[in-house]
């Protein structure tokens, strides 16, 4: 399942109007959709929210990948639904909360499926976050697909030695993970050590304020997207407040 999620969230270069936007605009778009999802309640508002998320996702030609992320979130969504029902919320209210969670996941994912790790780094630097923190965060994001590949290979190797991950009760299944997790962690530690040495060998940390090859700059299309996003966001919230009721 983690593999499906990582595949869904993995950035792929695509030539679409959304991918080519400045990453700050994509972040703003995602944050605004997130806020709409957060306040939406009831079938009508949720329908509008999902439609609002679907528009940029379709323009980014990422509906299928977004679908994968949503499918993965369904497990957590089911958990949320059950907990809400158990604590005494009516079924419709519980369903509404669950759908809101899925909308939040989709809104957040939009930024990650359309933004490269490099762009993510530029945005974080633009927010003047500490350089070491930015580097560590972006490296972690970049490492996810590599770790997923490692995970697949380790599982294959251990299955070839007779390990049956899906057999046995919950305790046995947890125990079955040991031969997978130990090589995964050890490999990740070795790789991170090697990366640290390689970075230092190439001068990382030699100067306090390193120069940057890329600077973020807003173009005409970014201003247009900014206006459309802010306009749509205000319109939706206004409609939620005055026209589209909870039920």
């Amino acid at each position: 399942m983690a593999h499906v999620l990582a595949e869904g969230l993995k950035f792929r270069h695509q030539d679409t109007p959304i991918h080519s936007l400045d990453p700050r605009i994509k972040l703003l778009m995602s944050v605004m959709l997130f806020s709409v999802a957060l306040v939406s309640d009831g079938p009508y508002q949720l329908a509008v929210t999902f439609a609002a998320i679907a528009v940029p996702t379709t323009l980014a030609r990422s509906l299928r990948r977004m679908g994968r992320v949503v499918v993965v979130s369904l497990t957590f969504a089911a958990f949320i639904l059950v907990v809400n029902i158990l604590v005494g919320y009516p079924l419709l209210k519980s369903l509404s909360i669950t759908l809101r969670f899925i909308a939040i996941v989709a809104a957040t994912s939009l930024f990650f499926v359309t933004t490269s790790p490099d762009e993510l780094e530029y945005v974080m630097r633009w927010f003047r976050l500490p350089r070491d923190f930015v580097f560590a965060f972006v490296t972690a994001v970049r490492f996810v697909p590599v770790l997923m590949l490692d995970l697949t290979q380790i599982i294959d190797a251990q299955k070839s030695r007779g390990l049956e991950l899906d057999k046995g009760g919950p305790i046995k299944r947890l125990r079955n993970l040991v031969p997978v997790l130990i090589p995964l962690i050890v490999n990740a530690l070795i790789r991170s050590g090697e990366l640290a040495e390689a970075m230092e060998s190439r001068g990382y940390g030699a100067v306090k304020k390193p120069t940057s090859l890329h600077e973020l700059r807003l173009w005409g299309r970014d201003y247009a997207a900014l206006m459309i996003t802010v306009g749509a966001w205000s319109g939706i919230l206004f409609a939620f407040r005055y026209y589209i009721g909870v039920v």
């Binding site: 299955k159 070839s160 050890v186």
Partner: peptide, 20 residues
């Protein structure tokens, strides 16, 4: 896979993926 692996022993390229 377990049934087949008993007959076909596969040694993967990266030893570090197997040893734990």
């Amino acid at each position: 896979v377990a049934e087949l692996s008993k007959k076909i022993g596969l040694v993967f390229q990266n030893s570090d993926h197997q040893l734990f």
